[in-house]
């Protein structure tokens, strides 16, 4: 599996990097950490590139390299990269310019297959979408953004599962909330949930929410399937069927001490674009990390 972790700054991205790396380790996935810097005006692309290349003669790093260096140090301190990569150390000039707005360096991982560090410039959605397409990533991990449109566009346009790391506190004991219904991606979400729960030794709450008192047959079937699957996987879990409005109920139950995992919406892209979706609401309104499985 391939995970892409998007970081923004040293100050705010540590929880994203920490949880992202822990989840990636659980999946034994190869990880790429990407920093997307601000867009450079097309009038100035060559000029800025020339100025940045000139900085290298002075052993000065371009913007963003310090953030990648910080991520590298985090990987070293937490034993995520192999000793050979560690000995070489991270130097900005190891970054290989692959495009005008993209450079990369790859390190040998210890618990994960490979760790890549990528520096990009431009519109964040466009850059992440391009990177996901280029690297065929399965999961994109990103910190919560205050911009509503950003989460909306991530969920709508990025062709991978999305893990939004919101209010993550390493000292908190988390439980897992699996949102189960009859959507096709639920099965994949349950499988992801099992892997994460096993790695973190979490208890799973498999929750099915109906907006009518009478549960649809398919909902009951999905819940029963999840129960069987979780039992077979040997994961400690509970099955819950709740009645109420989806977002209010899940928000109430999740609080700030759950990691929510749910499948992506099956509504048409046009409907999702204009009216939103349950996963989008979860990412926006819940106060805890949420993984939307596509």
């Amino acid at each position: 599996m391939k995970f892409l972790i998007a970081i923004g700054s040293k100050e705010f991205s540590e929880p994203t990097l920490e949880l992202g790396m822990r989840v990636a380790r659980a999946f034994k996935a190869s990880v790429t950490i990407v920093y997307v810097g601000e867009k450079i005006s097309a009038f100035s692309t060559s000029e800025v590139l020339m100025a940045q290349e000139n900085l290298e003669n002075w052993e000065l790093d371009r913007q963003g390299v310090d953030v990648l260096e910080w991520a590298y140090n985090y990987l070293v301190e937490n034993d995520y990269i192999s000793s050979s990569s560690e000995k070489e150390g991270f130097i900005g000039d190891k970054l290989v310019q692959t495009d005008d707005d993209r450079c990369e360096v790859f390190l040998e991982g210890k618990h994960t297959q490979e760790v890549g560090l990528i520096l990009r410039n431009g519109d964040i959605i466009q850059q992440l979408r391009d990177e996901v397409k280029r690297g065929e990533f399965d999961v994109t991990i990103i910190g919560a953004s205050k911009k509503r449109r950003m989460i909306h566009d991530l969920i709508q346009f990025i062709d991978s599962s999305i893990f939004v790391v919101k209010n993550y506190d390493r000292n908190k004991q988390y439980k897992m909330l699996l949102a189960v219904n009859d959507a096709p991606n639920t099965k994949k979400a349950v499988k992801y949930g099992v892997r994460v729960a096993q790695a973190f030794d979490l208890e799973i709450n498999a929750l099915t929410i109906s907006n009518t008192i009478e549960f649809r047959g398919n909902y009951k079937k999905a819940s029963a399937w999840a129960d069987t699957f979780l039992r077979r996987a040997g994961v400690k879990h509970s099955i819950n069927l709740e009645y109420g409005k989806f977002i209010e109920t899940i928000n109430l139950i999740a609080g700030d001490d759950h990691i929510i995992i749910m499948g992506s919406s099956t509504r048409s892209p046009l409907t999702k674009f204009f009216t939103g979706s349950k996963p989008l609401n979860v990412c926006e309104k819940c106060n805890c990390p949420a993984l939307i499985v596509k």
């Binding site: 810097g37 601000e38 450079i40 005006s41 009038f43 100035s44 000029e47 800025v48 100025a51 913007q63």
Partner: peptide, 15 residues
């Protein structure tokens, strides 16, 4: 503005 000229963009690229 940042986009006003390449020089503005160059200093902005320092972060």
């Amino acid at each position: 503005t940042i986009v006003a000229s390449p020089t503005c963009m160059i200093i902005h690229s320092s972060g």
